[in-house]
């Protein structure tokens, strides 16, 4: 009996310590304590500021509605299509800028200014040309993605060590072979970084496009609905779902990059530059 109870105690101990480590290790400690304090401070739910319990109730109600899932799906679809197009355009533009001297001659002087391009100020123009529907949203997301991806890819191409260019010159590599064997692999860590930035921009643009061009399904519906119905709980849940979806997308991209590019290559290509 003594033996059993001590074993049970050890088991309980390890469960508790594991849970503790899960909380502290994943950075959940601060948010969880904020929620707790918030709930304790406002048990009855004040005017305009719902407490965590009320939010949880709203959320549980929401996830039982199919419209919520359709909205989530629509936003994810939007960001994925826009991001994919923008990433393709961005990588291609960056490679062309880095690899073709006439492209560099033409655009080189202004490329670094692209970073300051006010993407969202293009919304009225996009609406004028493309209407309020899906195309305008996708173009906005793609544009927002392409800027950091282009800049980062171009940067990666510019810092390729001359010593490797010499080797490629010695063997008379043609543009495409050089692209495949030297430029792309060497620029890869930079491209990966650009893609990460691009996805963050894409997600932001998705939300903004939904708010400004409110037609069709999307997660921003939650926020708009909350505003119209004076329901801050809906808005807060909307914000939280958007944030969490963004984090999940980021993690998925990291996974993808991790599998597509051997880790060794990422670090080697980065190192070889030093």
């Amino acid at each position: 009996m003594v033996y059993l109870s001590s074993q049970a105690k050890a088991l309980a101990d390890s469960t508790v310590s594991r849970a503790w480590r899960a909380v502290t290790g994943t950075g959940l400690l601060l948010p969880l304590s904020v929620l707790l304090v918030w709930q304790l401070a406002d048990r009855h739910g004040g005017e305009g500021i719902p407490n965590p319990a009320a939010l949880a109730a709203t959320f549980l109600h929401l996830v039982r509605e199919s419209a919520f899932w359709w909205a989530l799906l629509a936003s994810i679809r939007r960001v994925m299509i826009g991001f994919a197009c923008g990433a393709l355009v961005g990588v291609a533009t960056g490679l062309a800028l880095g690899g073709l001297s006439w492209m560099r001659w033409l655009f080189g002087p202004v490329v670094s200014l692209w970073r300051y391009m006010p993407i969202f100020s293009l919304i009225p123009l996009l609406v004028l040309w493309l209407g309020l529907g899906e195309p305008a949203k996708l173009v906005l997301v793609a544009l927002a993605t392409s800027v950091p991806v282009t800049l980062s890819t171009y940067e990666g191409m510019r810092v390729i060590p001359q010593k490797y260019q010499d080797v490629a010159d010695m063997f008379g590599l043609t543009f495409w072979v050089r692209l495949k064997l030297l430029l792309l692999p060497a620029a890869l860590p930079f491209v990966a970084n650009g893609l990460r930035q691009g996805l963050a921009f894409a997600w932001m643009a998705t939300v903004v496009s939904e708010l400004f061009l409110s037609s069709g399904a999307g997660l921003s519906e939650l926020i708009v609905a909350g505003q119209e119905q004076f329901r801050p709980d809906l808005m807060l849940i909307g914000i939280a779902v958007i944030a969490i979806t963004g984090i999940a997308l980021n993690k998925a991209l990291d996974r993808l990059i991790h599998y597509a590019v051997p880790g060794a290559q990422l670090s080697i290509a980065g190192e070889s530059r030093s």
Binding site: K163, L181, P185
Partner: peptide, 10 residues
């Protein structure tokens, strides 16, 4: 070359 200059990713 004086250094081997192999491409590290190949």
């Amino acid at each position: 070359f004086q250094d081997h200059r192999l491409f590290p990713w190949l």
